[in-house]
Design a protein around this nucleic acid. Structure first.
Lengths: 230, 230
DNA sequence: ATGCCTTTGTGAACGCGTGCACAAAGATGG
DNA sequence: CCATCTTTGTGCACGCGTTCACAAAGGCAT
């Protein structure tokens, strides 16, 4: 398949074709009217725009289970990322092989960053060590940090930090799960009400502190919200 | 501190106080005018709305580095998640202790789900095994899946899937990193141009297939885009 | 060469979320 | 009990991203 239309691409991606074309137009990607987009050229343009054609040396600090998982993650190489080094504070880890690389001690952090020209650091340490590691990374010249530790990092102007909290994704799933359950419960309640016996709302587990006077009526506390997060 | 105002909360969170109040109003959380929100009551309301007060048994399938990391992740317990079981297809893993739990073989997947009332599954297997695992999870009654495998999962209506791609976060950092570098290069180029010698754009690594006629002029192919993703 | 057909690129309209500004409500002090 | 002050809850306006719809452009058959 040498060429694709915005319509095909949009259907495959599950988005609107107009949006896709407009997005491409921002990139300056030129298709051919009446034909579509040349696949190879398009792939190259998007790859370059996204930085996939560049080589990004990355250092991973904290080689526990998560750090090891990241070191061995297959998706990195194909996206232009190269693990330039693994760092761990535990001397017992020093010298060990993880995912084909040798773990080095924290002492070697700065030389590693400078030698390899690392500008992106990944923090997979316990929460307590994260800020100290972050400071050393920044000091050594790292300007982008991916933080898996459950802490908010303070960084100077010009340094980007992205925080990944693995439990947030679960949280979102649980939220939807609750909504599903809530809707079912509501249906049952509605049926019960139709049968003549209104379902009475359960008392709050934590009482309202001050005077809990009127309620707007139509919604008990157990209501599901009208909005939902992403 | 028994009570907080929306202003304080907004400042701490780095958002607009009006937005915060509006969001709270959607939840039906009632503050007290002239005083603010009762902290304990607010925490309880938000927790309940988010499902933190419920107990969510979770099964993790695929106990490699990532699965082990997830099993030991501290953030789960405090958010209401409980790892009900660890499953791995490798018989060599069966019976081993990971993060204080015993790894069980894939054969025990269905009974585990039914006994523990699991409705959320986490897939941390290699890409090849993910869809098969997914099918079995759904068949056994799981309705929410968190997928760490680099595959798109096909699921029936009513089942939620969230895909976590660890390299995407790095991708976003790299994109910004590229923009930073691009801006610096542009500055240098502008200086060079001011000195009389215009920087010439490098030829594309992949040639345009068809006729590459006019360009709108002001932007060489190496341009950074005018927009950026989240 | 000419006309028709397909698909792009984009101006314009729509919808939604965010932020502003203010009235209502409750607390507090005289 | 009334006046004043603080803070909530929310109608309204603005801005941005998405979608619609169509003119322009290129390919292709006759």
């Amino acid at each position: 398949m040498p060429t694709v239309s915005s319509e095909e691409l949009a259907a495959a991606a599950g988005v609107n074709s107009a949006k896709l074309r407009k997005d491409f137009s921002y990139l300056g990607s030129y298709g051919t009217r009446g034909v579509g987009y040349d696949v190879e050229y398009l792939v190259y343009q998007i790859s370059r725009e996204l930085g996939l054609t560049q080589d990004w040396p990355v250092v991973i600090v904290g080689i526990g289970n998560l750090g090891a998982a990241l070191a061995g993650y297959g998706g990195f190489a194909s996206r232009g990322f190269r693990v330039a080094g693994l760092i761990d504070a535990d001397r017992a880890m020093t010298g060990k092989q993880v995912a084909g690389l040798t773990v080095r001690h924290t002492d070697e952090l700065e030389p590693l960053i400078k030698e390899s020209g690392v500008s992106i650091g990944v923090i997979a340490t316990p929460a307590g060590a994260a800020q100290a590691v972050c400071n050393r990374l920044v000091e050594a010249g790292v300007t982008s940090i991916l933080n898996f530790a459950p802490t908010v990092l303070n960084v100077p102007e010009g340094v980007d930090v992205r925080k990944v909290d693995l439990s947030i994704e679960l949280q979102i799933l649980a939220f939807h799960e609750q909504r599903k359950a809530g809707e079912e419960a509501e249906l049952r309640e509605a049926e019960a009400a139709a049968a003549g016996q209104g379902g009475k709302p359960a008392a709050d587990a934590v009482a309202r502190p001050a005077a809990r006077k009127k309620r707007t009526g139509q919604g008990p506390d157990g209501d599901v919200p009208a909005v939902m997060p992403a």
